[in-house]
Design a protein around this nucleic acid. Structure first.
Length: 671
RNA sequence: GCGCUGGUAGCUCAAUUGGAUAGAGCGUUGGCCUCCGAAGCCAAAGGUUGCGGGUUCGACUCCCGCCCGGCGCACCA
């Protein structure tokens, strides 16, 4: 279905062209209006009045004079400084709803069209550290990343989910070493290996030994080397740890309803052979790919009043350059040192050795001493870091992936990302800013076929805080295990439902408890703007009133209940003639139903699912008002009853789509 | 110190990206069940959008300067 906004935009564009000439036709400025004033409004007259030197209200009148819109709206009204207010005609809303009804019956798309130009979008989310039990820190990434992936897929994009698990860090040295010791002692021939809970304990014990026992720490580092050299015994142990962790993570993803499978996993270990080449490629990219010579890239300027000119630190490591600058300025006084150092920018990206480490230096990044801040891609001991892995992963996703082994491909053919989205913690935003800039500086963000710039997004999110406003921890100060958290959510949901609806059968009750409990946790996270910190509160998320998961699910069950009372299923309902939108609550619900596409579009544009949550909540409010005022089963006549049943089914269809398909939250017939 | 981010009703959060009289929920107050699930609905009270300037026909939104909080800032991820 063509979005309402598009239809209106086109009509206004035509009117603007006729009234003022084609050059003014491109800014119709159509928005959904405040319900008190309008369904939609056009705000072009004010800006245009300014440009043309005319009174805005006169401009508005002239636009209306040329506007052909009587089939959709009642007569447009000019208000305030020059707003053009539009009210949709009930007949037209009814017509759109009939169209939506057939659309939702046949295609279940809620009136949303597939995008015109589908993109290949990589969504990198969840990414738990292997060998540690998943905790609340992984919750937001998993929930948000999944909702974003579902929404983009629904819109017609090719979504490549990537679970970038931490399966190859230096922590594996101590973990393997410690596990080796334990295995020696506990190897009594029993087939069943330790469970993940044991691994979690291992991790803490290993970390402690690593910290306190120098011999152990040295052996742990040797284990890392052995692992990197693919020593069979070490590798076997590593596989065992990784497999065990994967099983655990898979269980939790299933419990959460997160659509990540083993095929989506491409962890750090996958990139291990790509790290050295990436560093080499970066060096050559900066040597030959830039728009100027690769030397003299740190340009240090003194002020105009002391025309020393640029000081050439060509070939000098930046840290040393900063020190040299300090010495230089010390000779001329402290004030000059500050002045000079604050105008010592890195003007072009380059790779350099600094203090033994291989670093990328980028314009705009300085540390607390105002010295150029590096992105370290290889440590002084030769080891690689997560920046290297991230760069290798991006290179792979955008350019290289034709080398993907068959068994690791999520798609049947080679693909190259048009967009890459990282759903991680906001604390990593500087890291990603540097990684993205490095990629752009190296020209690795160019799609190999379309030659377009790949869109790189860090969909950052805030921390989960406890009700005291401090980071969410258990009473003993440990991070909350995800499994415990979800179990508690289910049991709390069960308790609430037992109180409100004791008649449910035990089986239905148990299933509903899971849907409601998990849904409450997910919805609470999704409904808030992801960029802000989020205060975790059982009471608020499980509340049955307000903008919560349970409330929306309850709204859905009431609709199901109406159909049960009516003795009909949605499939039985056939529309004859027109929908009747005589009551204001019917009209309000009808208008609201048509706004679903705009909400989905907002999620895509900003990668923020809370826009959809807010919409679904307002839809439920509109439905509740309708429910109170307009009897469905006992409607005055059969036609009105059918019309209202259709409004019910449309509401249910949008809720199913939004809640279940896009947000990944279950709906249920009874609760 | 530099950078990012936030500051909106007593509390938790919105505000379609520059549009009208800033909206919800909780809490408070007052109404509504012989009637489809009251887990609901209707209504009232509650605001100098941290402070001060500026841009604009119009600012929670953009710019500048302060104040307060969170986070980050060289070999962990």
């Amino acid at each position: 279905m063509i979005p309402i906004e598009s239809i209106l935009r086109q009509r206004f564009s035509t009117a603007l062209g006729l009234a003022f000439g084609a050059e003014f036709a491109d800014q119709p400025m159509i928005k959904a209006g405040d319900e008190k004033f309008a369904d939609y409004q056009c705000n072009a007259a004010m800006a245009l009045g300014k440009q043309l030197g005319l009174a805005p209200r006169a401009v508005a009148e002239k636009i209306i004079a040329h506007l052909e819109i009587s089939d959709l709206c009642s007569v447009p009204q000019v208000a305030g400084p020059g707003f053009i207010n539009l009210r949709l005609k009930p007949e037209w809303v009814a017509h759109r709803l009939a169209e939506l009804f057939s659309d939702s019956v046949e295609k279940n798309r809620g009136g949303v069209d597939l995008v015109a130009q589908p993109q290949t979008v990589v969504v990198d989310y969840a990414g738990p550290n292997i060998a540690k039990e998943m905790h609340v820190g992984h919750l937001r990434s998993a929930i948000l990343g999944d909702a974003i992936s579902r929404t983009l897929k629904f819109l017609g994009h090719t979504v490549v989910r990537q679970n970038h698990v931490g399966d190859f860090g230096t922590q594996f040295g101590m973990l393997i070493r410690h596990a080796q010791d334990l295995k020696l002692r506990t190897d009594d021939g029993t087939a069943s290996g330790p469970q993940i809970a044991d691994l979690d304990t291992y991790y803490k014990e290993a970390a402690l030994r690593d910290k306190t026992n120098p011999d152990f720490a040295r052996q742990a580092r040797q284990a890392v080397v052995a692992l990197q050299h693919q020593d069979p015994q070490t590798t076997a142990l590593w596989h065992w740890i990784v497999d065990e962790s994967r099983r655990h993570a898979g269980e939790l993803f299933t419990m959460l309803g997160v659509q990540l499978t083993d095929a989506d996993e491409r962890g750090e270990s996958f990139y291990r052979d790509r790290l050295a080449p990436v560093v080499e490629r970066l060096k050559s990219a900066f040597a030959y790919g830039g728009d100027g010579p690769a030397t003299g890239l740190v340009e240090v300027f003194t002020s105009d009043s002391h025309p020393r000119g640029p000081v050439d630190f060509t070939g000098v490591p930046p840290r040393d350059a900063a020190e040299a600058l300090g010495a230089l300025a010390a000779a001329e006084g402290m004030e000059r040192a500050m002045e000079a150092s604050s105008t010592a920018p890195v003007t072009r990206a380059f790779v350099a050795e600094s203090q033994g480490a291989t670093c990328v230096f980028l314009p705009g990044f300085v540390d607390k001493d105002k010295a150029p801040l590096p992105l370290i891609i290889q440590k002084s001991d030769g080891a690689y870091l997560y920046a290297t892995t991230d760069l290798a992963a991006l290179y792979f996703r955008i350019i290289e992936n034709k080398d993907t082994p068959e068994d690791r491909r999520p798609l049947a053919q080679d693909w190259h990302a048009d967009q890459v989205i990282y759903v991680t913690d906001a604390r990593q935003s500087q890291h990603f800013a540097m990684v993205f800039d490095t990629l752009r500086a190296a020209r690795w963000d160019i799609h190999p076929q379309s030659h377009q710039h790949v869109q790189l997004d860090h969909a950052a999110f805030g921390s989960i805080l406890g009700e005291d406003g401090k980071p969410f921890k258990t009473r003993s100060g440990e991070s909350v295990k995800l499994r415990d958290l979800l179990t508690e959510a289910v049991s709390r949901a069960s308790a609430v439902m037992l109180e409100k609806n004791p008649e449910l059968s035990p089986q239905v009750h148990a299933a509903a408890s899971r849907t409601v409990g998990i849904g409450a946790v997910k919805y609470a996270d999704l409904k808030q703007d992801r960029t802000t910190d989020y205060a975790f509160s059982w009471a608020r998320m499980l509340a049955l009133e307000g903008n919560t998961g349970p409330y929306l699910q309850y709204c859905y069950t009431r609709i199901c209940s109406i159909f049960r009372k009516a003795g009909q299923t949605p499939a039985d309902v056939v529309l004859h003639g027109e929908l009747k939108l005589n009551a204001p609550q019917e009209m309000a619900l009808g208008r609201k139903l048509l706004q679903f596409p705009a909400a989905v579009e907002a999620v895509e544009r900003e990668l923020k699912p809370h826009h959809l949550c807010n919409y679904l909540y307002s839809l439920c409010c509109a439905f509740s008002a309708f429910y109170e005022a307009c009897p469905v089963v006992k409607a005055a006549d059969p036609e009105l009853r059918t019309s209202r049943l259709i409004l019910c089914e449309l509401t249910a269809a949008i809720l199913r789509l939004g809640l279940h398909d896009l947000l990944g939250i279950g709906v249920l017939e009874e609760m």
